[in-house]
């Protein structure tokens, strides 16, 4: 298990936004909702489209391509046409930095 590493400054991930980042070649989407920042694999499990171009609805992210929705916490699909979960990562805010742990 690797350590938490900084992937963005908090000010670059304003509340209510989705921001794509990369860590060790992994494409990650950060979602800032309320006090929390979530991190998911930045690819819809339906047709490999980046979730970062989708939109936030409550604690779910909607893929813009066909409307599949995923739970930000668990990556579980909440609306078809997706049937498989999206990988999630541990994320935290440390001071002014957003940190993610992968692997």
């Amino acid at each position: 298990m690797s350590d938490f590493r900084t992937v963005a400054r908090l000010e670059d991930v304003p509340p209510g936004t989705l921001v794509p980042v990369e860590l060790d070649g992994e494409k990650i989407v950060l979602a800032h909702v309320g006090e929390r920042v979530y991190a998911l694999h930045d690819q819809c499990s339906h047709e490999e489209y980046p979730l970062s171009s989708g939109e936030l609805v409550g604690d779910q992210v909607t893929c813009v391509l066909h409307g599949a929705r995923f739970d930000l916490e668990t990556g579980t699909p909440r609306a078809l046409p997706a049937v498989r979960p999206v990988k999630t990562y541990q994320a935290r805010v440390e001071g002014e930095e957003v940190q993610v742990r992968i692997g």
């Binding site: 909607t62 893929c63 813009v64 391509l65 066909h66 409307g67 599949a68 929705r69 909440r78 609306a79 078809l80 046409p81």
Partner: peptide, 10 residues
């Protein structure tokens, strides 16, 4: 509602 057929579907 719209969890089976989202508006983006087609």
């Amino acid at each position: 509602f719209a969890t089976v057929v989202p508006p983006q579907d087609n």
